[in-house]
Design a protein around this nucleic acid. Structure first.
Length: 320
RNA sequence: GCUGAGAUAGCUCAGUUGGUAGAGCACUGCCUUGAAAAGGCAGGUGUCCCCAGUUCAAGUCUGGGUCUCAGCA
């Protein structure tokens, strides 16, 4: 246990204030920040992803930002974990503390629990499997999985075509079921909710926990702030280059919502409403993930000042 | 003011020949291993505008009222 690298994680849904807390606390902790975010890895997508500014990045060193161009199509959890591992190693080797912050739950999972050995995607095979589902129906594809890997078939609904395809892909390419590998994957909790498993880091995980209604208000305010900071210009740039960009940046909340506005199909107000709604959805599903993370909740509310909040987080970190 | 149409879930609406209600979205919960800000699953919700009447039974039929929209003045 003691041999594992110690890391500190500030967790929270979008607009919870985790990134700014991490930035404010980093100097006091002697820490550098590692971003855990599936969208901030793209260069040039700055405002919409709420990426740390150049000034912030010259004050505190940030890692795992701007890893790839938005045209790059093959990024995956595996690549993220490799990048984060090396950033953490680098930080520790210089005698600093790794402070992780970001909202992509799957990346935390991969980083803390590890990624099993499995082949990368095979686009041709995926297309073939999808075509099969398109022709014979999702249930027919699921039946194929039932024959080859009954455990995975049981786990995934037949309409969850993406996972059904992936499971079929893995067993087709390796002859081994993903379910076998996944059983070896430790997980954060067992059925009783007790912590278990061999984790890759010795971590402290703090969750910034706002009441839902309050979080939604913060989201509204943050979208408005992004607009002031030039979100529309950035979204227009994404819109113009949409043919060249890979799928992932085009799915980011903050850009696609303006496409109907740029094409004249919607008013700006409508687009902004959609953006706020989608951001709420994002926050909600992040909350679902975080509920089963082994984290310490820090309950926040509007009566607290920014400094109160920072002191509270700092205090919790020292208690550990 | 007249004529016509409408009033049903938070929103947009569907409701066959009368048997106290539904779909999408929103909202809530859950799942999540190389696309994850993606993808999938599940759930609750109602003075059916109001008041009378007919009927065993009215969202549905009849009468009156209120409001909204459109057209005409």
């Amino acid at each position: 246990m003691g041999e594992k690298t110690a890391i500190t994680i500030i967790l929270g849904p979008t607009a919870s204030g985790k990134e700014s807390a991490a930035f404010a606390l980093a100097p006091r902790l002697g820490a550098e920040i590692v971003s855990v975010d599936s969208m901030k890895i793209y260069r040039t997508l700055d405002v919409g992803t709420a990426k740390a500014t150049a000034e912030m990045r010259s004050a505190v060193r940030h890692h795992c930002l701007d890893l790839i161009e938005p045209t790059y199509d093959d990024f995956s959890v595996g690549e993220y974990v490799a990048a984060a591992d090396s950033a953490i190693g680098d930080i520790v080797s210089r005698g600093k503390i790794p402070l992780l912050s970001g909202g992509t739950a799957l990346y935390y999972k991969g980083l803390l629990e590890g990624i099993f050995e499995a082949p990368a995607k095979d686009s041709a095979l995926r297309e073939e499997l999808r075509a099969y589902a398109g022709e014979h129906g999702n249930e027919a594809l699921h039946r194929r999985l039932q024959e080859l890997d009954p455990v995975s078939a049981l786990k995934y609904h037949y309409n969850d075509i993406r996972r059904v395809v992936r499971a079929l892909e893995v067993i087709t390419l390796t002859g081994k079921p993903v379910s076998g590998s996944r059983n070896e994957w430790s997980g954060f909790h067992d059925d009783d909710g007790a912590f278990r498993g061999e984790l890759r880091y010795d971590f402290t995980m703090l969750l910034l926990d706002w009441p839902r209604a309050e979080l939604y208000k913060r989201i509204e305010a943050r979208v408005d702030l992004m607009l002031e900071r030039g979100l529309l210009t950035e979204a227009e740039y994404v819109y113009r280059r949409r043919e060249e960009f890979s799928r992932t940046p085009l799915q980011a909340v903050g850009y696609k919502e303006f496409f109907p506005y740029f094409s004249g199909a919607q008013s700006l107000e409508e687009a902004v409403e959609t953006l706020k709604k989608n951001t709420r959805h994002l926050a909600k599903s992040q909350c679902t993930w975080f509920r089963k993370f082994p984290c310490e909740r820090i309950a926040l509310d509007t009566s607290m000042s920014k400094d109160d909040i920072l002191e509270l987080i700092y205090g919790r970190m020292r208690d550990r």
